[in-house]
Design a protein around this nucleic acid. Structure first.
Length: 1066
RNA sequence: GCCCGGGUGGCGGAAUUGGUAUACGCGACAGACUUAAAAUCUGUUUCUCGCAAGGGAUUGUGGGUUCGAGUCCCACUCCGGGCACCA
């Protein structure tokens, strides 16, 4: 027998597989298709580290197993090669990024081939290849030439857009441009001063650049944007149709951040009162835009005309997108740019202000309004603001704050009142103050809020700080459960009550009631009824005296608000519907005491409880809350409950109230139902060289003109210097002969767009190109798309959940709307791998110097050892530290397999031991199921158990060994192929049929029956698996060990679990 | 603060969904082989009391349900990830 020499055999078989193309996927095979996918790598100069391989290997195992199970498997690979790292390296080494990319791909290919994955290399793609990015540009132009048809709820060609008749040529163009799914907007974007590039919202992490960590700045630039927000709702809804890890779904849903509520319109009133028309004369839906602001992307407060043309007729439950949230803005963008930059600031009359709220039911509790410091209304109200200097100063301060400062939750709230100006609460016509504060974001909703301090934490904090009115309009409702549940057959009684917290005269102890004397399990403070004409304090004092017996006390303070409760009171045999007015905190002054009347104390015992024990002693919700307030201060109640102080809406439950008031607002033209999203449109321009050129020509006369399909690809011109510029202009802008061209429409002088696309562009559709990677006529043929799509299994990192995964779903839906693909979702199943940490438990990184290089591991132990270890180290989805010593265990496992070839006899099952056969079938079952469920670690462990079993035998059969090798082959393709061929097999092991198990043979015939006494294991016996209950009990009780425990004791019960145990209860 | 995960030996981790907790691997210890070491092979290895037979404890903490809980329920705590003044 030769020594196991992985270096030799692995290279040999890799060449052989390459030559014979055994992993090639067939288009239109008779077999069932299976398309599995990993996120294609970015070929960086650093090369692969062991962490990158984890998902490649895992999906490779699935691909191999599926292939052996008779599927036509496509497992493709390619390169996501545009982007900054390559460009930066190119600049540093003065090498063309094309060359850098080529070299990196060469190196990556070598590395990848060295661990033996079963990729179909014939479909290899490269996003920087003009033949590829021709289609990226083509899709971009499709977006440019489409609009979102709200009626049909899908994208359509722009030629179907309804254009208002009365527009002149320029207005018409602007109208169309403002409806394109790829559109230009001048806006404040996130700018990384170090990378010198604009960032998408998703690329900003904690206010810093995701890539380099530099603090992102705001920069106002004209940007290409993609209207992903139009797909927000579908991107949430269609998650129901796919199988993604739950955490991926919730992350996407949270990121899109849908909230339903209402837009409410408030009237603004200045002191002189001349600028405020009667609101009754207004119609809510009437356009009220600023006629002098030309921009269609301007805030809809100024411009409603676009919306009005897009009115959607939807089902009753579907609200239109919030008006205050038109899609032109990016998440970090200043909505009011045109005004804020002073481009268009006419001194107009502004008579209303809209806010978005998810709690229209709290409108009666709105005691002030807050505008974000950037709100344009301020500028137009200047003449009425009495403290203008102060206000301007505040705006200036806010402007100079970084995003990080502004969003720091730990800091105290700041703000300034607009003196001389008031808002009118439309529900009750009350005049309320208007404040400016940077806790209100310009980029969400309408940039203004109605403040309800009693029911919102932020408003509460602000109101407390500035002494603003806090008005409770929602009362919490506590409903008894269990014993305390309302009983239908009992009488209902209504009472008005107060909680009374009584403090001891010298100790830090509190008077509590234990109701166990009556039929209740309550533990509370003193609860007292408020009698007619009595104040809460008076009632509290009276009850405190009656129930506790103490006589000298004083009211310290009243805390809490109104709360309702509904429960059954067993001691009175009635249902109670209490209105708790508040809680009164009382301190005893001395021990003066008169024995309370029997009547007062027959249901409960009074107990003094130490301060630190009170929290655990009390078991009713309201007193618990009152105690918390006494200890930690008042808090707003933000939950749902019952309306109070809300006039005709009083006593409505919150969710019902919301519906009713929204209807009321709509009927009175004061507001309407609205939906808001946190998701912003996708900033699509990058001011860099190494990306797809945006195929647009800019003509002074004709505006933005799309290139024709025949002019694609628009190739990147060669350029001497690809350094980014500080001006924010792309390096392409400097190449005059490329930039200056004739307008394709009017032939006058025009310029090319010089920004490029982000590297998320190429990756947003690459999985479609694999299907037909050589097609010159289409991005892929419809027939092939139909055959292969959707992707059956897609694996990728969690870090791409709100980036690539969301973007590519968006593009796919767009292509679906236009009829280019036949599924609305691209990926059927999405899974995610865990990170491999360095041996020190930290993230692997070059700077920490703790990176494990797969090349070295392969060199020393072989690819099969590496592959096995990466799968064995722990659950696939978990982050696990690398351990070289554990890796050695996998090498030992392979050595053992190698040596076992000597034990293989030629006879088939003749000498097979019954136990081994059972074990074999159990293993087939386990491995088959585990691979399907991505439980590779336990699959390998069961293969080890089988090997250990085989190893105990003198001889093993050819068939046993073969089945073992076949099962191992997806994990360790090289050694299994070598051993397989050694036994005179002609065809590759990777083309063999996956073994099937026999359920009968996998069953044990003998089991270990466990005998327990009171749930504790006391004895075990070998018995036939199908032993009857009676038989088992008889044997169990007859055992000496068991007799020892049962002697002299009464046997209460014997439990029998088939095939498992007998439990004797004594 | 909110939303997801998770806490099991010295370490990575198993546990058929309520039925023998600690599979499998690493490490450690002892033995065999060897002049010796490495490699390999054999055995031991959750903790604890005990010479032993045997007992006791144990799945982050505290309670509960159950004949029986790592698994279910309640409260707390710690760790990881995501979001974060989103009205």
């Amino acid at each position: 027998m030769q020594k196991y020499n992985p270096q030799k055999i692995e290279k040999k078989w890799q060449k052989e597989w390459d030559k014979s193309e055994i992993y090639k996927a067939e288009d239109f095979s008779e077999k069932k298709k299976f398309y599995c996918l990993i996120e294609f790598p970015y070929p960086s100069g650093a090369g692969l580290h062991v962490g990158h391989l984890r998902s490649h290997i895992a999906i490779d195992i699935i691909a191999r197993k599926k292939r052996m199970s008779g599927y036509n498997v496509m497992y493709p690979i390619g390169w996501d090669a545009f982007g900054l790292p390559t460009e930066n390296f190119a600049i540093k080494t003065k090498t063309h990024p094309k060359i850098v990319t080529e070299n990196n791909i060469k190196n990556f290919t070598k590395q990848i081939k060295s661990y033996g994955p079963s990729f179909d290399w014939s479909r290899e793609i490269n996003t920087t290849d003009p033949k590829y990015y021709k289609w990226t540009q083509w899709i971009f132009l499709k977006l440019f030439n489409s609009f979102y048809d709200e009626k049909l709820d899908k994208a359509r060609d722009i030629k179907y857009l309804d254009i208002p008749k009365n527009l002149n040529a320029l207005e018409k163009r602007e109208f169309i441009d403002s409806h394109r799914l790829a559109y230009e907007a001048e806006m404040a974007i996130n700018w990384c001063p170090s990378c010198k590039i604009g960032l998408a919202n998703e690329e900003v992490v904690n206010g810093t650049c995701e890539r380099c960590g530099a603090l992102a700045e705001k920069k106002i630039m004209k940007q290409w944007m993609l209207r992903i927000t139009k797909y927000a709702d579908r991107l949430i809804k269609d998650l129901d149709t796919v199988d993604y890890l739950n955490k991926i779904k919730t992350q996407q849903v949270n990121w899109i951040g849908k909230s339903e509520g209402a837009i409410v319109k408030f009237q603004i009133k200045t002191d002189d009162n001349i600028k405020t028309p009667e609101h009754s004369s207004e119609v809510f839906n009437e356009p009220e835009g600023n006629p002098r602001c030309r921009s269609k992307t301007c805030h809809p407060i100024y411009n409603n005309s676009i919306n009005d043309n897009e009115k959607v007729v939807k089902s009753k439950n579907d609200a239109e997108p919030a008006e205050g949230f038109e899609p032109s803005d990016n998440r970090m963008t200043n909505l009011y740019l045109h005004h804020a930059t002073g481009k268009s600031t006419p001194n107009l009359l502004y008579h209303s202000l809209k806010v978005f709220t998810t709690r229209p039911d709290t409108l009666f509790g709105c005691t002030y309004m807050v505008l974000s410091p950037e709100h344009p209304l301020i500028k137009n109200l200047e003449s009425g603001i009495l403290n203008l200097e102060e206000v301007k100063k505040y705006i200036e301060q806010a402007k100079n704050k970084s995003d990080l400062d502004r969003t720091d939750l730990a800091k105290e709230k700041t703000g300034v009142e607009l003196k001389g100006i008031k808002a009118i609460n439309p529900i009750n016509n009350e005049e309320i103050p208007i404040w400016l504060a940077d806790y209100v974001l310009a980029s969400y909703g309408t940039g203004a809020i109605m403040a309800v301090p009693a029911h919102d934490e932020r408003d509460f904090e602000f109101a407390k700080k500035f002494g603003l009115e806090i008005k409770q309009v929602v009362a919490p409702l506590f409903i008894g459960e269990g014993k305390n549940k309302i009983r239908k057959d009992k009488k209902n009684t209504k009472r008005t009550v107060v909680d009374v917290i009584i403090k001891h005269w010298e100790k830090d102890e509190y008077f509590c009631l234990d109701w166990s004397k009556s039929k209740n399990d309550w533990k509370s403070f003193v609860v007292g009824g408020v009698e007619k004409g009595e104040s809460e304090e008076e009632a509290a004092l009276r009850e405190a005296k009656e129930e506790s017996g103490y006589q000298n006390m004083r009211v310290v303070k009243k805390i809490g608000g109104i709360a309702y409760s509904r429960f059954f009171a067993a001691h009175k045999d009635v249902n109670r519907r209490d209105i708790k007015r508040s809680c009164v905190y009382i301190e005893l002054l001395n021990s003066s005491f008169i024995e309370p009347k029997e009547e007062e104390v027959k249901n409960h015992n009074g107990i003094w409880v130490k301060k630190e024990k009170v929290k655990d002693f009390i078991n009713l919700q309201e007193p618990k809350i009152h105690w918390d307030i006494l200890q930690n201060g008042e808090k707003p109640f933000i939950g749902y409950g019952i309306a109070i102080n809300s006039e005709q809406f009083n006593n409505l439950e919150t969710s019902e109230f919301k519906i009713k008031i929204t209807k009321w607002l709509e009927e009175n033209n004061l507001g309407k139902k609205a939906i808001n999203y946190k998701l912003r449109d996708w900033v699509f321009s990058r001011q860099h060289y190494w990306g797809e050129p945006i195929p647009i020509v800019k003509c002074e006369k004709c505006g933005n003109i799309a290139l024709e399909k025949k002019d694609l690809p628009l190739e990147l011109p060669d350029v001497k210097n690809y350094e980014p510029t500080d001006t924010g202009k792309s390096p392409l802008a400097k190449i005059d002969q490329w930039v200056n061209i004739k307008c394709p429409k009017c032939n006058s002088n025009a310029k090319r767009e010089t920004d490029t696309m982000p590297n998320w562009a190429g990756s947003s559709w690459y999985f479609l190109r694999y299907i037909d990677s050589k097609n010159n006529k289409e991005f892929a043929s419809p027939e092939k798309l139909k055959y292969w799509m959707p992707v059956d299994l897609y694996n990728g990192g969690m870090e791409h959940t709100t980036l690539h995964l969301l973007y590519s779903r968006f593009w796919h839906k767009f292509l679906y709307d236009l009829g280019y693909v036949n599924t609305s979702e691209p990926y059927k199943i999405r899974r995610s791998h865990g990170m491999i940490l360095a041996e020190d438990g930290q993230k692997m990184s070059k700077s920490r110097g703790n990176v494990v290089n797969p090349d070295e591991v392969i060199e020393k132990y072989g690819a099969d050892t590496l592959r096995l270890y990466e799968m064995f180290m722990g659950p696939y989805g978990d982050a696990i530290p690398w351990s070289t010593s554990s890796l050695i265990g996998m090498n030992r496992f392979l050595e053992k397999i190698w040596k076992m070839q000597n034990k293989v006899g030629t006879q088939n099952f003749v000498s097979a031991n019954k136990n081994i056969e059972t074990l074999l079938h159990q293993t087939i079952k386990k491995v088959t199921e585990d691979i399907e469920n991505l439980k590779f670690n336990t699959a390998i462990s069961s293969l080890m158990i089988l090997l250990n079993g085989l190893d105990k035998k003198e001889k093993i059969s050819n068939i046993q060994y073969s089945i073992f090798l076949i099962m191992l082959s997806p994990f360790a393709p090289h050694i299994t192929e070598e051993l397989w061929k050694m036994f005179e097999n002609k065809e590759s092991i990777h083309l063999q049929k996956w073994p099937e198990y026999n359920e009968k043979l996998a069953e044990e015939t003998e089991i270990t029956l466990v005998i327990q006494i009171n749930g504790k294991v006391r004895d075990q016996i070998e018995v036939p698996a199908d032993i009857s209950e009676e038989e088992a009990k008889k044997i169990a009780l007859g055992r000496d060990k068991i007799k020892k425990w049962t002697e002299g004791k009464e046997m209460r019960k014997i439990i029998f679990v088939k095939g498992k145990l007998v439990n004797v209860v004594v």
